[in-house]
Amino acid sequence: MKRIKTRAIRALLAILVTTPLLVVMTSTQPAFANYFGNGCCTFADNGHHTFNWDSTEYGTALAVQYSMSNLNNQTDMTTEWVVPSSQTDNRSYDQHYTTYWGLDWDGSSTGWNLYAYAKCVETTLAGNCQQWQIRYDLADMNRFSNYQRQQVACHETGHSVGLDHSSEGASCLRNAVLSASTNYYTSHDRGHINGRW
């Protein structure tokens, strides 16, 4: 009888100790940085990300080229410049946009001056993005330094692989991108990408 009681007490103790521990283990989130694939931007369709920037001016082209090399060097994704087609993952354009796609590029109404905008224009059957069109506003790109253009291109390329805006000051995915302290991805950003590819 005594043995049964002891076992019952042990079992109860074990439940009391392990239950809160496991609840904590399954519900604790890391400090928020950004979403990946389930935030602003769907996943890329595969781990090989192709680029074309033929329709951009020299300064923008250099920045997009930088963002391609950076993605290749910083993460497990591979990248390649390709002749443009409907399969190209990241197609860049630049113009002096004012109301393109019904957006308020200079922010005169929204109060948000838009430097660049990435839009998934073609999705796969699985719901991932086949092609992102990325449009850079020359009104801003032409007044930016090379470094600032790289920050913007890094930001938009991040969207094109599924990264949402980041709460980290060092990430180029920071919402107000020019206030980011770097022009590349943080270990948190890289963790998202490398975890998938």
Binding site: Y115, E156, H165, N175, V177, L178
Partner: peptide, 8 residues
Amino acid sequence: RDSGGSGA
């Protein structure tokens, strides 16, 4: 879920 921009 299909767009993202940058600005100020």
